[in-house]
Design a protein around this nucleic acid. Structure first.
Lengths: 176, 176, 176, 176
DNA sequence: TTTT
DNA sequence: TTTT
């Protein structure tokens, strides 16, 4: 049924609140910006140097709902998914590629904070999601992680921003 | 020493021969284009649909030498590495990002073909490595890999091509 | 839904043909003895020393059927499952424990041999499994796998052998 | 250098404080009893049933020292290691097998509690840890994990207990 | 661009 | 008991 293996395992912290979107069918699609911290020994200096890597994570289905509801900026989380590279068009008409870690029903998401005291919240209401205007409004995610100029994958609401041109032509469920 | 986890596990086949480059220090750096095949059930049709995902893999150190020497187009391989996103400048001066699976001394590479009967070779001498002039000579790897407009990471030889502007400012070992 | 992670990833070769059994409900349960080979540097001698580790793998459901049908002694295989330790009673009435790698619908099995040229077959019919005398008859599997004195988990046919006392009290499906 | 893969990834909580021992060379060897919690759907009742699996984890080297110093009963931890089955002699002279997850310099251990507020410590003051009343004080971890009767692998101090007969014949470092 |  |  499958002739290959494509698996990603991450433990890190969210750089910002999750972004929740919905497919036309009402299914949640959640984007996370996840930082994994490591340190490595610089060969020149012999010093340990911290290295932070930012990952774009996209969750679908039930795990997306849980992530959207309970995770917050700063939350520590375990992610198991698969690598996927999407092609999209830049505003200049050129092809761009964004690689994401996709978590669907074959993946896994585990919250690693004790009692859901995940991040610090700082204004980002943890439940009920009141926060006025909603996601994506105003400045595009100011605590901006890598690849921030990439579109969120076409699962987005009507993109009122100029570019980089989300695909946004979903007339149905995402097909997996 | 590390406060996060960043791990990728792949099993797939090479879409082309490995590309070997060297750092100024003489260390091998090898790029692979690896295809992982899966299939998923299309929700619309109920049919199983094949899905091929292409991955950019970069190997360093000893594992790079082995990969460069024994892997060929078509080779089946197990890869364990970490995700890393590089920023580079497009010819239009805009930032681009490329995500790669980095395999260094903390990663792993396993050849999964029996007896090194990996690919077919087809002009690319699989054993003994005669091919005098070596890699990268002449045209810069015309069998362009996925995201081919991305530079190969600055580990490349003096890039005589116009763009997409390799970074190529390494005066020493890559620092990990 | 889960508050932990329990994952095993193996690539190795079968030490013998798979052992297929059936639950009262007719579901296949397959046992594998899988060898993983590594080598490590002996601190005393500085020499690389090969190390073979043997694993008991138990597959359920569809993946079990595929394994039973296509894998043979010598087959190379990728396994993704979870660790599980079973308690059983030795013939002396004492508790024993056997740890297995369980592969169910949440796990994965990938055959890594090209074209099913896996093992050698050597009399072990690949399909239909006629071989009258075969497994489980008479002496309790004399081609003894690791931890051979452990029962095969109660998924076995009526165990006529004396001991080590399989549990064998399944009146239904295994519950996962 | 290796022709197989043998990898275990666990996230769980310690059932008791770590047990630290030392090799004759003064290297730390730490044993953990780690519980991973999952839940699965019972096919009979359709109910989600919790399932706790206990794992024996053995750490060597630097990671052992960190584990021994900072982990406590209740600590949440990420473990990456390899499976290893040891043979030992029961008091009845019979062979027994214990499967452990070995974490050495090729493995990884990550503490997942915020700020080292891991467990409760119960008398074994780690460092800085005042631990007022503490969890589970009194009897040392009465919720004894699986395989508790297995010897700790010969890395133990002179075993004054009668059985199950630790091997304890190490005259040097463990060889990996 | 691979593989089955 | 496998494999290279």
């Amino acid at each position: 049924m499958a002739r290959g293996v494509n698996k990603v395992i991450l433990i890190g912290n969210l750089g910002q609140d999750p972004e929740t979107r919905y497919t036309p069918n009402g299914n949640a699609v959640v984007n996370l910006n996840l930082a994994t911290d490591e340190s490595y020994k610089d060969r020149q200096t012999g010093q340990m140097v911290p290295r932070t890597e930012w990952h774009r994570v996209v969750l679908f289905g039930k795990v997306a709902e849980v992530a959207g509801q309970y995770l917050r900026k700063g939350s520590k989380v375990y992610i198991e998914g698969r690598l996927q590279t999407r092609k999209w068009q830049g505003q200049d008409g050129q092809d761009r590629y964004t690689t994401e870690v996709v978590v669907d029903m074959n993946g896994q998401m585990q919250m690693l904070d004790s009692r859901g005291d995940s991040g610090m919240g700082q204004g980002s209401a943890p439940a009920g999601r009141p926060q006025s205007s909603g996601y994506g409004g105003g400045q595009p995610s100011q605590g901006a992680p890598a690849q921030s100029s990439a579109p969120s994958g076409g699962y987005s609401q009507p993109s009122q921003g100029s570019m980089p041109e989300p695909v946004d032509d979903f007339d149905d469920d995402i097909p997996f």
